[in-house]
Design a protein around this nucleic acid. Structure first.
Lengths: 342, 342
DNA sequence: CTGAAAGCGCTTACAG
DNA sequence: CTGAAAGCGCTTACAG
């Protein structure tokens, strides 16, 4: 980039002041239409672009949003959870549509994330995305709040949380899926996925799952809840643990599709047929879910809708419009992996 | 963000000049170690962060890289090609490792991309990623060059291209895969994917494919090359067209895994068994490739390696170190979809 | 509607 | 090793 044109160059050529150039370029009504047109034409000719650093510095906002993606430290380094990848894609688009740039950052690499972004005047607001230990990061949310940083979180939505969160209605999702499983005639169940406060999203799915079982007067078997994080390997391990137990459930509900995919591989490896020997359900509806064999029945999270809401909510906060946390419903997608087993 | 601390606040509390604070914070050797420590401690206490806009404006560089992702306008709006999604993830990481921020942008939304980023002083350099009509965009590359914008492109690598490109060795990839198919005993082939200059990557894969066939003294059948873009639907359509022809090939080589996945679905729908009735191979090794049934034999593009190289090359250019275009080899991943059919 | 001037918060010669 | 000063390229009161 040599000899970049500045607003002064344009002012000189247009025979007006630099202030007028600045106004004309931002379509201020305070400028004569003819002057404006002349200036805008000149700007195009000179390939002039407003220097963002200068304008941001002066006006004290950035026109960019930052997306902080947390990753489970145990997850495979080279592979990002496809669900978040999909969210990332949709958020990028939503930000662009609203005229914001998007700064993307992975947060395994910096412990100081809570301060890094807005403090550095890089972004007007933050989108927080990812699994990760909720208990660890609840405190950082308080710091963000204290600094009056604008942020939205995608994740579990509960009363008393700091800041605004959007998230899938995990409890209802777990409930709906389990009702479906019961309606298919299944009577005993396993749940693959961590189900404690460290991972409140999975926990809510589990609680919804249990509610449906109890409502159907079926027994909840605690030993059938096996921890797993959202990776194929972890799902596979959990499935192996499950199959080593004395009894085998009719249906296995996995806290995420990644877990389900891992479990499916394990079931096949041990000679079990899905859904004939054992039914299998996931959560998320990631792109692979309809490509596995059998195709996976799952609860769909609408990533495009979620991304739009996230960006909208953040921009409202930036404009000081009050916003509230909200739940986004998940949708049951019935495919092949849960057909009645007898 | 209220009352944000500035370097002046620190200078005042430390009893030194603002210049010294600036130097101390950037670890300049020109500052007394004790003074430096005092200043750095103070900065931490006050949660001070350097204002990027101000420092970028003054020093005339941004510390950020911009990733421009082109998309095939025909592709499904809500779904980004998983191969590029994976690249996006790896590039984000690679940028972070090198101390750069990453601005992500989808380029269906702006025709003016060639000017938008570096000109606006948003980024020190550009990474160009995506399929898209090469002929359309070759000219824009010239504009970038003319403006002395730093950029790297991921895509086809050919002599006489403007700027520096990194890319998979598509020709060799097509060749290696086809040799494998031949070694499995297959004698007649179809190729699913566009094979003209608008999509030079697919074209190169096709040319490598043909070379292997010719070398084996087998006939190349032009009617068996069926256009497709890299989506499931397009692959499925191409497979349908293929099956409507008079003869059926032993093996189908798809220009991408997405095409292969679509083709697989179509074959199953028409009652064909893969690989027993027809062998199927892909290209990319996207995450679903090992989850289909049968698992897909494919040529793997190492996205992590590619991302590292892309970022490295761009940073070198920013530092005015000369860099060259280069090819990254693809790796044959043999799975189940190509076993000999008899 | 327009211009002159201040100033956003830094970095970096320059002088000591 | 340190400080005073200039200046990056804008936006925005302020005065006309």
């Amino acid at each position: 980039m040599k000899n970049k044109a500045t607003s002064l160059d344009i002012a000189f050529q247009a025979g007006v002041s630099q202030s007028t150039v600045s106004r004309a370029l931002r379509n201020s009504p305070l400028v004569n239409p003819e002057t404006r047109q002349k200036i805008q034409r000149l700007a195009k000719e000179l390939k002039y672009k407003v220097d963002k650093n200068a304008s941001n510095l002066r006006s004290q906002h950035t026109g960019t949003l930052a997306l902080l993606l947390f990753e489970d430290p145990t997850s495979d380094d080279s592979m990002i959870n496809p669900f978040f990848l999909s969210m990332l894609g949709c958020i990028t688009r939503a930000a662009a549509v609203n005229g914001y740039d998007l700064l993307v950052s992975f947060q395994q690499l910096s412990e100081d994330w809570h301060a890094d972004y807005e403090d550095a005047s890089k972004a007007d607001g933050l989108i927080l995305l990812g699994y990760g230990d909720y208990i660890d990061y609840a405190e950082k949310l308080n710091q963000l709040k204290e600094q009056e940083t604008h942020f939205v979180r995608y994740g579990s939505v509960e009363d008393g949380q700091t800041g605004v969160s959007l998230g899938c209605d995990n409890f209802d999702g777990g409930y709906v899926m389990t009702k479906h499983l019961i309606a298919q005639g299944h009577k005993s169940f396993a749940f693959l996925g961590g189900a404690d406060a460290h991972c409140p999203e999975f926990q809510a799915r589990y609680q919804g799952h249990c509610k449906a079982i109890v409502e159907a007067d079926l027994p909840v078997n605690q030993t059938m809840q096996i921890d797993a994080i959202s990776t194929e390997d972890s799902g596979s391990d959990a499935a192996r643990t499950l199959l080593s137990l004395d009894e085998r459930p009719d249906a296995v509900f996995c806290a995420s599709d990644m877990i389900a995919v891992g479990a499916l591989t394990q079931f096949h490896r041990q000679g079990l047929s899905v859904p004939d020997d054992i039914a299998l359900a996931g959560f998320d509806d990631i792109p692979v879910a309809h490509l596995t064999s059998p195709q996976l029945t799952t609860m769909q999270q609408n990533t495009k809708l979620a991304a739009d809401r996230l960006v909208e909510s953040l921009i409202k906060q930036i404009h000081n419009t009050p916003v509230e946390s909200a739940l986004i419903p998940a949708k049951l997608i019935v495919r092949e992996s849960c057909r009645k087993s007898n």
